[in-house]
């Protein structure tokens, strides 16, 4: 468990980082918190020829509210996002979900950008970004590019990010009047979810009038499920739609049928809680 040989660059400005990344091509990998990349390199599952360490690039971890949009920099650590008052006020879904992400030591290093760029199917934050209708802002030497979260996650560890691009930040639109809900099922506290569900719902007069959701741990990547969201709004049994819609993953410890079952359990729990809160 030692990484294969790699070159290492530690830029201090974004411009420099993007230049190195562009020259490195497919063989280069940004290094953020290293909580996923380093173990993958140690197992030689990942073998980038060049590591571009982002930890000395200033300004990538800012958390700010601008024009009603919450911006969270890619290098913001999980622990910082979890504790930030602006996040608690503007996107309370995130702290709720982040409590389920790994353990304190890992949250001290792991970053929002790393989690989104990695796109582990079981990771909580990608599902949250889908439910929050966030925009992922990418940068390359050629400029910035904005991708809606729902289009960013494309499959198992696959995203819309090109190899010469860095995640810069996410932008989360204001959601006044929306209620967040997040829960997951894991064998042990802090594990990646067997199934998790992030929901944002707008409720008036005791009913859900608008909803966005994203599952994690269930399918290869989180995605919006319009038919399920419509069923939630219509007050129908949304969970019963899931078997026809979802393509659950299977593994030795969590067969596909079990993940589907858990997705239904979570959706029922969410529906009940949101109605109670409405």
């Amino acid at each position: 468990m030692t990484p294969a040989r790699f070159a290492y660059a530690r830029p201090t400005t974004l411009e420099e980082a993007l230049g190195i990344l562009a020259r490195g091509g497919e063989e280069a990998a940004p290094l953020a918190g290293g909580q996923s990349l380093m173990p993958m390199m140690a197992m030689r599952v990942a073998r980038p020829a060049l590591l571009v360490d982002l930890n000395r690039v200033a300004g990538l971890d800012a958390i700010a509210l601008e024009g009603g949009v919450l911006r969270i920099g890619a290098m913001a650590r999980h622990a910082a996002v979890l504790a930030h008052p602006l996040v608690a006020a503007e996107a309370p879904l995130l702290p709720r979900a982040l409590e389920e992400v790994a353990h304190p030591a890992i949250r001290n290093r792991g970053t929002l950008g790393g989690s989104l760029a990695l796109a582990d199917p079981a990771a909580e934050l990608p599902a949250c970004m889908v439910a929050l209708d966030a925009t992922i802002v990418l940068a390359s030497a050629g400029g910035e590019r904005r991708v809606p979260a729902a289009d960013f996650f494309q499959g198992l560890y696959a995203t819309a990010r090109r190899s010469d691009e860095l995640l810069l930040r996410v932008e989360i639109p204001r959601a006044a009047g929306w209620t967040p809900w997040f829960a997951e099922v894991a064998r042990r506290r802090g594990d990646y979810a067997l199934a998790g569900l992030a929901v944002m719902a707008r409720c008036t007069a005791g009913r859900i009038v608008e909803a966005r959701l994203g599952f994690c741990g269930v399918e290869a990547a989180p995605r919006r499920l319009p038919a399920v969201e419509a069923a939630l709004v219509a007050g129908e049994d949304a969970a019963s739609r899931l078997p026809a819609l979802l393509e659950p993953l299977g593994s030795a410890e969590a067969p596909a049928g079990y993940r589907l079952h858990l997705a239904q359990v979570l959706l029922r729990r969410a529906t009940e809680a949101l109605h109670a809160a409405a």
Binding site: M43, R188, R189, G190, D191, A252, E253
Partner: peptide, 26 residues
Amino acid sequence: ACRYDAESGQFLSGTLADYLLPMATD
């Protein structure tokens, strides 16, 4: 559990993310 694939006989519990040890909260 040390699990093996029923068909290929491949070992499936090769990391501590797959081999579930009890943790303090368990």
